[in-house]
Design a protein around this nucleic acid. Structure first.
Lengths: 233, 233
DNA sequence: CGTCACCTTGATGGATATCAAAAACCGTGG
DNA sequence: CCACGGTTTTTGATATCCATCAAGGTGACG
């Protein structure tokens, strides 16, 4: 891998944090590169967890589809994040489907070879533990949000999170850095796209956001944060 | 600890699974016993994560209280389960408050001494990783439930989960094994106790449950499961 | 037997989903 | 450049779920 043009010094992500160069090298040697276009499913909910993936560039969303057909987006993952890590370590079927939101490059390890690496380089354990622990805390956070907050707040939270992950500064605010439909946002916020549309319209009138087709600019992060926290007007 | 009357062979819980006797002994030696009555807070949301706890007997519930005062019960934990494990391993403030639901006995490790043990007995890592990974998967599950299901389904799910954790067989069904108020159930199901009361009344009329003051018996697990899965009448 | 905690039930309202229809937008192929 | 077709978005009307408010009932326990 190193000779593939990915020098170790540019490697980023919680998996590699604080590891000696030798271990980083071993990880990279065992990985393969995977490139995809937008809209590709990296794996499907229910598949056996054969591959551990790390986003190098691009974005991936994790969605679960319930028995009744309702889609829930669990999270959106960007560069440096591990996709499918809990499933791989626990050898459970992937609980959700991973879909690319744009052209995406990934590092990929076969589960078996990753376990091999873990055995040889126990230092990786710490990072894995940290990553999974962080994942657990994030999900706890989401449970509370969905349980206790109203749709408008959840939409604000989802938008702010997206902006933090992908936002690009504009002269008139922060624009979400990838094309996003009302429906995408609805799945992230546990609402319908009707409600999302109405909410964005209302915010636009108040000058909090500017939105177009597949495009949202946050004009006032402060006001949106206030809404997210329940300090409603 | 061994000499305190808790022979290693009776130790249970995912933390000890598969460990050599020597390691189990070291864990027990480093632990202290903690006994509490019902209704005691073991730690509070926001406290520094000083102690790792394992339930030996009894039940503990984890609740988070939001800025607006709304309580959400994240989960109920029984014998063998680790309370506060993610917070301790990540050294983050406890995200929720742990309260005993009945008289409870716990094993307790100070965070520092547990990390010491981890270093000396790396085999524990595997178990910790497994426990936290399982926690993460459970929380993902909950996100989907709360996002996509209706109140009646969530109540059914909460009841079935409680029965699985604490249920005792009766001649007329499975009784939830601890006193539980409508309000408790409401916090678990992200609903109000009014809705819980109405729902239980309806189910009682249909012969699915029998409920009294702080007491619920599931007369038909099958029917309740059908409701939980959305196969409504 | 009074008091407190818990539970039930009804009436009402608000938030949000659902249904319906049309408008805006965008890429594409003529 | 323009017309077309599909996707996305908006907006309105309505229905539904569930929270909220209000009032009283019921059981446990000192």
């Amino acid at each position: 891998m190193n000779q593939d043009g990915v020098p170790a010094t540019t490697v980023q992500g919680a998996l590699f944090a604080g590891l000696p160069n030798e271990t980083v090298g071993a990880l990279l040697d065992a990985a393969s590169l995977r490139q995809t276009t937008q809209g590709i499913a990296l794996f499907h909910q229910g598949d056996p967890p054969n591959d551990l993936l790390q986003v190098v560039s691009g974005m991936v969303k994790m969605t679960q589809i319930g028995g009744d057909g309702a889609q829930t987006t669990l999270r959106v993952m960007g560069p440096g994040e591990l996709v499918g890590c809990v499933a791989v370590f626990q050898q459970f079927p992937y609980p959700a489907t991973a879909t690319t939101l744009e052209d995406t490059v990934l590092l990929s390890w076969r589960a078996a070879s990753f376990f091999e690496l873990l055995k040889q380089h126990p230092a990786i354990y710490d990072n894995v533990l940290r990553i999974i622990g962080t994942r657990a805390r994030e999900m706890v956070q989401r449970v509370v949000e969905v349980s206790a907050k109203r749709a408008e707040q959840r939409i604000a939270i989802a938008l702010l999170r997206l902006a933090a992950q992908t936002g690009v500064e504009m002269e008139d605010g922060a624009e979400v850095g990838l094309p996003i439909t009302r429906n995408d946002l609805a799945e992230m916020a546990a609402a319908t796209y009707f409600t999302v549309s109405r909410t964005l319209s209302k915010w636009q009138q108040r000058g909090i956001v500017k939105s177009g087709r597949r495009r949202i600019v946050i004009a006032s992060v402060n006001k949106l944060t206030a809404i997210a926290e329940g300090h409603e007007s």
